[in-house]
Amino acid sequence: MSLIEITEVRKSFGDNEVLKGIDLNVEPGEVIAIIGKSGSGKSTLLRCINGLETINAGSIQVAGAQLATDELHLKALRLKVGMIFQGFNLFPHKTAGQNVMLSQMVVKKTPKPQAEEMAKKMLDRVGLGHKFDAYPDQLSGGQQQRVAIARALAMQPVALLCDEITSALDPELVQEVLAVVKELASEGMTLLMVTHEMRFARDVCSRVVFMHLGRVHEIGPPGEVFGNPKTPELRQFLGQTH
């Protein structure tokens, strides 16, 4: 059984069908890059996996937790998959440390000392142990995104969803975030990332998914997808971005 099973998923916004039957199975430890033009449905797919969008048909399952619309099922699913956003979305009224501690205490009812210890550990892991007491607006974009990663990791998810996590960053800050992701990948974390960093996808990912018009258009190891694109759409897409 795969860790993440996405079966025949369809999603429409009004009359506009954004996902037209997606099938994707992700094995534990896989790092998947999802690439494609804007509007191809890649972010929507990611958001469906942890229930930020409701799906119209099909099913999604992560480590035995089934996607459903009630709060109990959603919570069980979201404890398995963490998500990191393009806009960081740190809680501005809390320090970096408190950001990482909050959901542990509120959702998992972890006692404060343990939550604090975990927060320190996770902030150290992303190289920001010294910023425990800094507020988000005192951190650079790259640092904020690393705190967001620590915050997701503190919930000990089995997989992480990364939604264009470097797109809002200044070019010189992209690498520090990607370095953290790369390390997570090497430690065996299952990652699904929507990304425009083609070189990163080529170097780090085990498989690349090319989405086009709401479908998985091509899928395979990076060497194959980048080195020998089979469809004209992928060739055109890669031609644009390279």
Binding site: L52, R78, M83, F85, L90, V107, A148, A152
Partner: peptide, 8 residues
């Protein structure tokens, strides 16, 4: 979205 994705 961030707080929901953390399971709240």
């Amino acid at each position: 979205e961030a707080s929901a994705s953390l399971g709240m």
